[in-house]
């Protein structure tokens, strides 16, 4: 595939646009490394920073522990977004 072709494909979302139900709240899973991102999240707490409450953090011993299947299972159960920090 050419670089151009890839770019064009990236831009289009495979999802169909839809109406957002009123009771919907973004449900996000954050996979965080115990030693870096999780500690950063701790620090954010200690610093009493406020941020949007939609992200649920899952602590991994290391982001290397992340497996394809963890992310897929999250989506399978209807999660709206996943981010990994480490």
């Amino acid at each position: 595939m050419t670089a151009d072709g890839e770019k064009i494909e990236e831009r289009q979302s495979p999802e169909k646009p839809c109406e957002i139900p009123p009771d919907w709240k973004a449900n996000i899973i954050a996979f965080a490394c115990h030693y870096c991102a999780f500690a950063a999240a701790d620090l954010a707490g200690v610093m009493r920073l406020s941020y949007l409450p939609n992200s649920k953090v899952i602590r991994l011993p290391c982001t290397g522990k992340l497996d394809h299947i963890y992310v897929l299972r999250a989506f399978e159960r209807g999660i709206d977004g996943v981010f990994v920090a480490g």
């Binding site: 999240a41 620090l43 954010a44 610093m47 406020s50 941020y51």
Partner: peptide
């Protein structure tokens, strides 16, 4: 799906990413 690089000292960045 998104990946972020973050160190333990980056509390504010965490909040920002969230």
């Amino acid at each position: 799906l998104q990946f972020y690089n973050l160190s333990a000292a980056m509390g504010p960045r965490w909040a920002e990413i969230c």
